[in-house]
Simulated assay, not measured.
Amino acid sequence: MADTSGTHVVLGTPLDMQAEDGNLEIFLAGGCFWGVERFMWETPGVILTSTGYMGGKSTAPTYVQVCTGFTGHAETVRVIYDPKRVTTQELLAVFFENHDPTQVNRQGNDLGTQYRSAIWTTTAEQFEVAQLLKSAYEERIIAAGMPPIATEIHSPPPPVFYLAEEYHQGYLHKNPHGYCNHGFNGVECPSGVF
């Protein structure tokens, strides 16, 4: 079991922090969790990010186990954010724009169910916003000549999030030239549509 006693190497917040005092929690999977975590911790209003595993059938999975594809877990980033500083729509726009949400069980050369695109929401409002934004963004994606969005959107409550090993936490801060295939995908999300 991963150690939850540490603090985030960039944000300085406890890894076991709970979403309290009006802050919200959401779980995002969009390929290798190193890159997803970095563009989330760089988003103003995000209070905590942590990498882990979610959406599968095994308990207490390890990275090696998840990489086999047999656990069913996706590499996932837990995000706690202040909705007064960044709305759910703004946060999800960053998520959608910084990976290819049209790919099924992959991101670029990363292949397997662990790399699928998925959102696990914790409130009904998040679930509604995610569905509306996906629909609105899909129109732009298709107009740009890309396939429909494959991102899974799950209603609350989310399944158990298993914190990843310590070396995966804040990985691209600790290893600034480490592997990352994330970045702007070339299609902007609509803003202010709901």
Rank of each mutant, 00 (worst) to 15 (best):
N175T: 10
L48H: 03
Q169H: 09
A2P: 08
W41N: 11
G170M: 04
I80P: 03
G56E: 08
H73E: 00
T71F: 03
M146E: 09
F194Y: 14
Q103S: 09
C32K: 05
A124F: 11
A130S: 05
E188H: 15
K57G: 14
L28A: 05
E125M: 12
D82T: 05
H182W: 11
V77F: 00
V193E: 13
K134T: 05
A144G: 06
F39V: 04
N109I: 15
E188Q: 14
V9S: 14
S5K: 10
G55F: 06
I149M: 04
V193D: 13
V10M: 13
S117Q: 08
P176R: 13
L91W: 09
F96T: 01
A136I: 14
D110T: 09
F184K: 09
E166W: 13
T7K: 12
E138N: 03
V9K: 09
E152G: 08
G6A: 05
H73Y: 01
H8D: 15
W120R: 05
T122L: 02
R106H: 10
P159S: 09
I47Y: 01
V187Y: 08
T88C: 15
T87M: 13
E152I: 07
M146H: 14
I80D: 02
S191V: 14
R78K: 11
P101C: 07
T49G: 10
G52P: 05
K134G: 09
V104Y: 12
R38I: 02
W41Q: 10
A143Q: 15
G12K: 10
P148L: 07
E152A: 11
Y179I: 00
Y137I: 01
A144V: 07
E75H: 06
D82G: 07
F161N: 00
P190E: 02
Y171N: 00
E90D: 11
M146L: 15
T59V: 15
Y162Q: 05
G178H: 04
M146Y: 10
H8V: 12
F27L: 00
A130E: 02
Q65M: 04
P14G: 05
G108A: 13
D100S: 03
L28S: 06
A2W: 01
G145K: 06
K84F: 09
R140P: 08
P176Y: 14
T59H: 12
I153K: 04
T62D: 02
H177P: 10
I153P: 01
C67R: 07
Q114H: 00
W120P: 06
L92D: 01
E25G: 02
V94H: 08
G183D: 08
G6W: 05
L91G: 07
L92W: 04
F194P: 11
R116Y: 03
V160Q: 15
M54H: 03
C32G: 04
M54T: 00
S117D: 07
V86Q: 01
Y162S: 05
A60W: 04
T68H: 11
